[in-house]
């Protein structure tokens, strides 16, 4: 089967400074890739680039167009809307209508009519991750998805993720927690950009 996502010779920069260069990997349907590396290594920058939130300095990303569901530190929730309203809004934006798998998958059914602003940090995170299920997108790009989740919620997330992969989806994530699933690991320290790499340094001038 063709690769779900193909990243070739990708170079990315943060704040005009190149952080990673020549990153290449392919992701088959049903496969998960875990990015590892110390703080500041460029995990978030790489994920933002794959999600299309910032341009790459060089290289190409194939298969990402309109197939990525992105989840980062901010969950994109409105405090004054209920859990159900938040999920329904994102479902409609992505052209979906069924939010019950998302409510079930993260045990949010009992919280459905609570305002998102009154949820605990872990509950908000669960709602933020549940949003991925209502996008209907095959490739999940996750930046530290398990922050503020307890062991039980991490298990829920692991189960949902396995279901997603089992259905032919794919995932790229930056995480330090073992989710109990078969996942390839990519240590991005190997791709650190050389200190004197100056391509893209002129980027700031044209902003």
């Amino acid at each position: 089967m063709a690769a779900a996502l193909e990243v070739s010779n990708l170079s990315v920069a943060r704040g005009g400074v190149p952080v990673l260069s020549d990153v290449s990997f392919t992701l088959a349907p049903g496969e998960a890739l875990v990015l590892r590396g110390p703080n500041g290594a460029g995990k978030t920058t790489l994920l933002r680039c794959i999600a299309g939130l910032q341009p790459a300095l060089a290289g190409r990303i194939d298969g990402a167009e309109d197939r990525i569901a992105y989840a980062a530190h901010a969950d994109g929730l409105k405090a004054m809307l209920t859990v159900r309203e938040n999920l329904r809004f994102w479902a409609q934006v992505f052209g979906q209508s069924d939010i019950s798998p998302a409510l079930e998958g993260y045990a949010l059914r009992d919280l459905a009519d609570r305002l998102a602003g009154t949820l605990s940090a872990g509950q908000k995170r669960r709602l933020g991750l549940a949003r991925l299920l209502v996008t209907g997108r095959p490739i999940w790009v996750l930046d530290e998805p398990t922050v503020s989740l307890d062991a039980e919620a991490v298990a829920l997330f692991g189960a949902v993720l396995r279901g997603h992969l089992g259905a032919g989806g794919a995932a790229v994530m930056a995480t330090h927690i073992d989710l109990g699933l078969e996942a390839r690991t990519l240590d991005i320290r190997a791709y650190r950009a050389a200190e004197d790499a100056d391509f893209g340094a002129s980027d700031a001038v044209f902003l």
Binding site: I68, G76, F94, R131
Partner: peptide, 14 residues
């Protein structure tokens, strides 16, 4: 921007 929905809107099909 604060709650992240702006970035998520950017990745949405809209």
């Amino acid at each position: 921007l604060e709650d992240g929905s702006l970035e998520l809107l950017l990745t949405a099909p809209l």
